[in-house]
């Protein structure tokens, strides 16, 4: 019995050590900024993205964010996995122009985007993006919720975190003050304001609503496999629990004659 107890203590200590070490990973420099913890529909073992929020979020991305930010890793066809019909995807994609070619004469040309194309980027390259944004590069949004500490909570906090700078804060020309951006100086001006979009489904477009919808959409863009992952996870874990139970019963039976 003592064997088991001391081995369990050792196991627990090493495991706990691992968790402590991992938890100690401080991801940002400077004083830590507390990001409010929000509830999202896709959290938890059964989480899914709310389809209406995704549609509204796509609309926000298309009408607001996409003026500066690309979404290079997402293809129009991917919208099929969140309930868009083939016809809807075709129509949606056709609004955007992409460069293709060379044609038979060797020239590049533009054509309306097809479902197989990835989301069209607002700028031809990083330099063009910087030139149009006073030297700042608007990052690609495809992985935003995975690429920032705090994930979706951070993104939502950032989008709604624009404030007047506190007295004495030295704000550079053309920059905005944001309560949640590391260092508080952000080159992106507040992108969201009341009724900044007119939702196709008639939802009132409050700042809160817009921020939460576009965060949902970008969370899906970053983890399009999330729903499938969680669904499969349930089956795998249930299988493993049953398997482990049988293995334990078998172990008990086989070991019953050992003293």
């Amino acid at each position: 019995m003592r064997n088991t107890v001391s081995s369990l203590v050792l196991l627990a200590a090493v495991a706990l050590g691992g968790v402590v070490i991992t938890g100690s990973d401080s991801h940002a420099a400077g004083p830590a900024i507390d990001i409010p913890d929000r509830q999202w529909s896709w959290e938890g073992p059964f989480g899914t993205f709310e389809r209406p929020a995704l549609r509204r979020g796509l609309q926000v991305y298309a009408e607001v964010c996409s003026a500066c930010h690309s979404l290079e890793l997402v293809a129009y066809r991917n919208l099929g996995s969140i309930g868009f019909s083939e016809a809807e995807i075709k129509t949606f994609a056709a609004q955007f122009e992409v460069t293709d070619g060379p044609d038979e004469e060797g020239d590049m040309y533009t054509r309306p985007a097809r479902p197989s194309d990835h989301f069209a980027s607002p700028f031809a390259n990083d330099n063009a993006a910087r030139a149009a944004n006073a030297g700042a590069l608007p990052p690609d949004l495809s992985l935003m919720t995975k690429a920032r500490a705090g994930g979706a909570d951070y993104l939502h906090a950032l989008l709604t975190g624009y404030e007047e700078p506190p007295a004495g804060f030295d704000l550079l020309e053309g920059m905005s003050y944001n309560a949640y951006f590391p260092g508080h100086q952000i080159a992106m001006a507040a992108p969201i304001y009341e009724d900044g979009v007119e939702y196709a489904d008639g939802t009132p477009a409050t700042v809160e609503q817009i921020a939460s919808d576009v965060t949902t959409f970008l969370a899906w863009a970053a983890e399009p496999e999330l729903e499938e992952r969680k669904r499969l996870g349930i089956k795998v874990i249930i299988f493993l629990i049953v398997f482990t139970g049988f293995a334990y019963a078998l172990k008990r039976k086989i070991w019953s004659d050992v003293h």
Binding site: L240, I241, T244, L250, V258
Partner: peptide, 24 residues
């Protein structure tokens, strides 16, 4: 069969831990 079955049980417990990270 003594340690093969004990290792099999241990493997089950470990895989549950492992897969919780992979999926969740």
């Amino acid at each position: 069969p003594y340690y093969t079955v004990k290792d099999l049980f241990g493997l089950g417990v470990f895989l549950i831990f492992f897969m919780l990270f992979v999926f969740y």
